[in-house]
Design a protein around this nucleic acid. Structure first.
Lengths: 149, 149
DNA sequence: CCTTGACCTTCCCATGATGGGAAGCTCCAC
DNA sequence: GTGGAGCTTCCCATCATGGGAAGGTCAAGG
């Protein structure tokens, strides 16, 4: 199987497959005489594992950890659960942060006429003029991962 | 006022102030004889506007739009509201996406013993073995912005 | 046999917003 | 005049991904 077929079978782009190899997330693949990478069902399975982990929002680093645990037949399930629960906590923190933004924004948008007049409570809030805005002061934590498009 | 004072007064790091100037978000500042940038209350006000917009999750591009609307005294509040509501929609989409992940992950974590045994439904799901996992298939939209730390 | 097009390879660059740090200048206080 | 704090510019790193160029390879069809 060439990289294109492996890509189709796994849902991971060829570009990303090469990248994962480069950063050591997956082992360097064997090559044919023409220098093409060769993949088998095993590799496709691993790529799909990675794909699914990414879809659940795990970073590549976390995915690597999970991958190693998956391949370690003597792992303790507690280790896996710990990674998962930490990630859940992370997601929930980010969700709460964004919900705070939404709450404030909805309030401001509700107060804004949205017509042809220039008067606008949203801008007033951003400018710090009004005491309208809610709690958008906490700078928030760094984003850990980004979803692919 | 030097850049350090402007930074303190606005909550925007000196590094970012220079960056905002570089990308044209704020006008290049006047310099003193020693080549130091000089800031006044007006500039600090603008920086705080930017800071607040960023805290509400607006991208720098959206922030620029809002900034221009703010400075355009003949704006129509509808234009501002449109930017805000689009951003709300964006946030809500991302929240829903992450909530989907959380839901799936919580279910999986709940099913996982989290003990010393290797058996783990979380890994089984990632491996695609079980029919346990929920809907983490939709690839999701690109992240538009990232919160600073 | 040769062309065409679809693959594959590597390499570099861009994204978005931010921080880190080096090298070199200035300014102020002691 | 010296030390340290603050300013300047410049380059690099992050995280995960895509875009694209330049060049090799292969299979099918003329």
């Amino acid at each position: 199987m060439n990289i294109g077929e492996a890509s189709n079978a796994s849902g991971v782009s060829a570009k990303m497959i090469r990248y994962y190899e480069e950063i050591g997330l997956i082992r360097p693949m064997g090559r044919t005489g023409n220098n093409y990478r060769v993949y088998g069902d095993e590799e496709v399975h691993i790529l799909r594992f990675i794909k699914r982990a990414r879809n659940l929002g795990f970073s590549l680093e976390e995915t690597e950890t999970l991958l190693k645990l998956w391949q370690d037949k003597s792992r303790e399930s507690a280790a896996v659960k710990e990674v998962a629960t930490a990630h859940i906590g992370d997601l929930e923190r980010r969700i709460a942060e964004m919900q705070g933004m939404v709450k404030t924004l909805k309030h401001l948008a509700h107060c804004c006429g949205g017509d042809t007049r220039p008067n606008c409570p949203i801008l007033d809030d951003l400018a710090g003029d009004g005491a309208v805005g809610g709690d958008a002061s906490a700078p928030a934590m760094k984003r850990k991962t980004k979803q692919h498009a």
